[in-house]
Structures are given as structure tokens and as C-alpha cells.
């Protein structure tokens, strides 16, 4: 009886009692969610164009952040380190196409998935080999610290993160909509075979999407790294992208964003208001519970592919 009270009634009483605190918690959650969105976005870009589920996306975030911070620790100026890291991510895309995807063309999805598992371990090992396993602090001069906005307390860094994510998504949307490469990527996502038949070179498509995913990973790595430090747990945080994808749909860019926001917000609110009643650590499992519920009731996700049926 008492338990039911603490789960069903008490949290709402608290929320009603201090709505401003609730909004703060919610905002914090949404801003964390933006980070999840960024990682999920990388998955979506690759999955849409090639139906490859890239398990290595999280590790790419870590790897990009490590490349960046490692060079800066060696004294390279930020712009140079950024430039080289971009170059490395592009190089990675070429390498993945040449060494992994091309030899495995026409293999089933599960085999390609396994291959990305391999890429993930390889990148993690390489990162560790090059830059060691310590926590690195990433200092790019991005403003951080608390800020009061209309009476609500937020972290500046989170705001910058949200702005960057917003810009990135807008840029991507414009790219997909208005450029000829973007058009071809949409075509490939729609009908892979037809794209082949009109002469779209698949290896070019692969290099492009892996490059895009690599650069998105770099952005995510910078934002995550600036707030948590660059460390190996980064690739674990990225695992949250999986429930985000289940919520948003694997092929939807808006889905990745909305899914990330939902996961970020609900788990934070759950943690703060329901955590005490449920024994804490709600943040660790709530996203997966949410994903499970979605799998049962809406397996295609919120923005799953619209299937056109003509009558």
C-alpha cells in the first residue's frame, strides 16, 4: 500500500509542489537526450542507405574524441587537431568500404552486422593503443557552467550541444533534400536494386554515408567529451542509442532526434522523481524498458518507414 503510494501518488505531488524544479529536470533530460540523438543519427545515416546496422557507431564517437584530445594533449592547436580528426574519419570511411564492405557485398545483414562488431573492437583497441586508457579532459573553449534562463537552471555546455545538434540536423535535412548526392542517398534507401540499375555506384554511397556518420560521431564525441571527459565509458553511453532507435525507427532522421529527446527526458524525470521509490538507478534501465514497450506495441518506431499503398 505504502509502495503504491510512493510510486503512483507521491511523485506527482512533488511535481505539482515544485513545477520549476520539474522543468529543470526535464530540460536537463532533454539536453542529455540531444546527445543520444547525435549518436543515433550516425546509425540512421548508415542504416538507411545500406541496411547495415553499424555497431561501431558508439566506438566511432569515442575514437574521434580520442584522436582529437590526443593530438591536443601533444600540443596541436584545436583547429589543426580538428582538421586531422576529420581527415582520419574520412580515411576510416574509405578503409571500411575497401576492407570490410566491398569484400562482403551481398552477404546477409547479420554478417555485415558482425563485421561492424569487428570494426568496433578494432577501433577501440587502436584508440587505446595510440592514446592509452586514461580519462582525458577535452578543453575546446566551449562555454560551460550554470546559467539561469527565465528562472530555470541549465548548463551552458548542454545548450551549446543542443544548438550544435540542431544545426547539424538542419544541415543534414537540407543536404538530403536539395543536393544530387542527397537525392541519390534517398533513392538508395528507397530501392537499393533500382538505384543499382540506374547506375548509382554503391561504393561511393558507402564511403559517403560512413564519412557522414564519422563526422556526426566527431561532433557527438566533442560534446560528450567536453561534459564527461574522453574515456572508454563513452562507447557504452552510446549503447543508449539502441533504445533511441527502437523508439524513433531505424530509418528516420527526425525519429532519431525525437527518440533521443524522449529517452533523455523520461529517464531523467524517472530517476529524479521515481528513483527513491524504485531504489534508484532508474536512468540505467528505463530507456530499455521503454524500448521493450515500443517493440511490443509499435515495432516500426514512431517514425518508421511510411509504406505507400496505392488503391
Amino acid at each position: 500500500m505504502h509502495f503504491l503510494y510512493t510510486v503512483l501518488i507521491d511523485p506527482f505531488v512533488q511535481i505539482a509542489g515544485d513545477p520549476r524544479f520539474f522543468v529543470e529536470v526535464l530540460t536537463g533530460g532533454l539536453l542529455t537526450g540531444v546527445m543520444y540523438s547525435l549518436v543515433a543519427l550516425g546509425f540512421v545515416i548508415i542504416y538507411k542507405a545500406s541496411r547495415v546496422f553499424n555497431f561501431a557507431q558508439g566506438t566511432m564517437v569515442l575514437f574521434a574524441a580520442l584522436m582529437l584530445v590526443g593530438q591536443m594533449e601533444m600540443g596541436a592547436p584545436a583547429w589543426l587537431a580538428l582538421g586531422t580528426t576529420c581527415g582520419v574519419m574520412v580515411g576510416l570511411a574509405f578503409a571500411v568500404e575497401r576492407l570490410v564492405l566491398r569484400p562482403m557485398v551481398n552477404q546477409s545483414e547479420i554478417i555485415l552486422f558482425m563485421a561492424t562488431l569487428g570494426i568496433s573492437f578494432f577501433l577501440e583497441g587502436l584508440g587505446q593503443l595510440m592514446w592509452g586508457g586514461d580519462v582525458h579532459t577535452l578543453e575546446l573553449g566551449i562555454p560551460s557552467g550554470p546559467l539561469t534562463l527565465g528562472g530555470i537552471l541549465v548548463n551552458k555546455l548542454d545548450l551549446v550541444g543542443a544548438a550544435v545538434a540542431g544545426l547539424l540536423v538542419t544541415a543534414l535535412a537540407l543536404f538530403f533534400r536539395w543536393t544530387s548526392v542527397g537525392r541519390v542517398l534517398r533513392a538508395v534507401a528507397d530501392d537499393h536494386q533500382a538505384a543499382l540499375s540506374v547506375g548509382v555506384p554503391l561504393k561511393v554511397v558507402w564511403v559517403i554515408v560512413w564519412t557522414m556518420a564519422g563526422l556526426v560521431a566527431l561532433v557527438a564525441g566533442i560534446m560528450w567529451g567536453s561534459s564527461l571527459g574522453v574515456q572508454f565509458s563513452l562507447s557504452l553511453v552510446a549503447l543508449k542509442a539502441l533504445p533511441v532507435l527502437i523508439l524513433g525507427g531505424f530509418t528516420s532522421v527526425p525519429g532519431a532526434i525525437v527518440g533521443g529527446l524522449i529517452v533523455g527526458a523520461t529517464e531523467k524525470v524517472g530517476e529524479v522523481f521515481w528513483g527513491p521509490a524504485l531504489g534508484g538507478a532508474v536512468e540505467n534501465w528505463f530507456a530499455y524498458l521503454l524500448a521493450l514497450i515500443f517493440l511490443l506495441f509499435r515495432p516500426q518506431g514512431l517514425f518508421g518507414e511510411r509504406i505507400i499503398e496505392r488503391v
Partner: peptide, 27 residues
Amino acid sequence: VIQVMEGRHCFEHLTVEDNLLTGAFAR
């Protein structure tokens, strides 16, 4: 040499014009 596949295989979520434009990509 180009094949027009059996069953048409249009890009359903692209506009008619975007479909046509994909054909110019290879060139």
C-alpha cells in the same frame, strides 16, 4: 547500357522529378 527492371521499381518516396534526376547521376 541501362536496364528498366521488371515491376518498374520507382523510388516511391521521391517525387517524379527526383526519380528522373537520379538517372542522370551516373553520367
